[in-house]
């Protein structure tokens, strides 16, 4: 399969949306290929849900285009959405029907779904026990699972999940992560929106970070993280002289640890810095030359969350 030939499962080009004379979405573009897990990150109110609604033709874009497997979502609604399973916001199903009746309801709206297929998705999400109970008796986690079962019914190529971890307990989140990984292994592409970044980091291959309706960063999780500098904790004694040496480097920035991280630091002569990891040997050499004892060099990998905060914090100031 040549790179040139591969059609993205989801291709979004220059998407814009104006609601009541206000641009809610301002030029969003990205592609998702087969088997990829794509994270869509942004703070609340950044336009995540509006974008998702456009992806599934609940809202029509003011400008730009969305293609699913090469089919335009607006003009070829049936052909495009045939390949899409989705949960938009909460998994809202018919509470007065049983889980099974809900699945039958949505199966009737797809071409050629057999009873076996319904049974299959019930087993995939592990709901055989309670499937014939009314949905109003389900917990949020079970509704979430039923929502995923519903989305998987038509064997979609693209699964869109909006804040899938909402309302799940840590065990549920872990299960969901494994579940999503397995789906991707089978060739399904996933589009996952979230404002909880640590989860996305563990789940996704690629991410787009959006802010005020614009993509501010898009790429592989690892690549994005490499671009930002790591936190390095220096254990030096005496502390004041060590700090002076660290400050003499232009590329090193002294920083503060937040409260949560601070608790994990036991020694009082720890100096946290933001710096490039490659510079560590050079700095170490200087320390030794100046007769300063280096007791600890600890590299803390930046999390997506740190990066996200630095990227979005600039925003709040202006």
């Amino acid at each position: 399969m040549g790179l040139k030939e591969e059609i993205p499962v989801l291709s979004v080009k220059h998407l814009k949306k104006k609601i009541k004379k206000k641009w809610i979405i301002n030029d969003i573009s990205f592609d998702i290929y087969e088997g990829q897990i794509f994270g869509f990150l942004g703070p609340n109110g950044s336009g995540k849900t509006t974008t998702i609604r456009m992806l599934v033709d609940l809202i029509s874009p003011t400008e730009g285009s969305i293609h699913v497997c090469g089919k335009n979502v607006q003009t070829e609604h049936d052909e495009a959405l045939k390949h899409v399973g989705c949960i938009v916001e909460n998994p809202e199903l018919y509470t007065y029907l049983t889980g099974w009746e809900n699945l039958e309801h949505f199966a009737a709206m797809l071409p050629n779904i057999s009873q076996q297929r319904i049974q299959e998705v019930v087993e995939i999400v592990g709901m055989d026990q309670r499937i014939h109970d009314k949905v109003k008796t389900y917990s949020l986690g079970m509704r979430q699972r039923l929502g995923i079962a519903q989305a998987l019914l038509g064997k979609p190529k693209l699964l869109i999940l909006d804040e899938p971890t909402n309302g799940l307990d840590p065990q549920g989140i872990k299960e969901l992560r494994i579940f999503i990984r397995n789906l991707a292994k089978e060739g399904l592409s996933l589009f996952i929106s979230s404002h909880l970044l640590s989860e996305i980091q563990l789940m996704c291959d690629r991410v787009a970070i959006i802010r005020k309706g614009e993509v501010i960063a898009v790429g592989n999780v690892d690549e994005l993280l490499e671009q930002s500098s790591s936190t390095v904790l220096w254990g030096v004694s005496p502390v004041e002289q060590g700090k002076k040496i660290l400050q003499s480097f232009q590329s090193i920035e002294l920083t503060q640890l937040d409260d949560f991280e601070f608790e994990t630091v036991t020694s009082s002569n720890i100096v946290p810095t933001l710096m490039n990891v490659e510079d560590i040997p050079l700095v170490n050499e200087q320390m030794v030359k100046a007769g300063i004892q280096v007791t600890n060099i600890e590299v803390r990998k930046p999390s997506l969350e740190d990066m996200f905060l630095t990227l979005t914090e600039g925003e709040r100031i202006d």
């Binding site: 033709d57 609940l58 609604h77 049936d78 045939k82 938009v88 909460n90 018919y94 509470t95 797809l110």
Partner: peptide, 14 residues
């Protein structure tokens, strides 16, 4: 108001 309209309208049906 129940939110199920979103599910109805995202099926491959006009």
């Amino acid at each position: 108001s129940a939110g199920t309209l979103k599910l109805l309208l995202t099926r491959p049906i006009k």
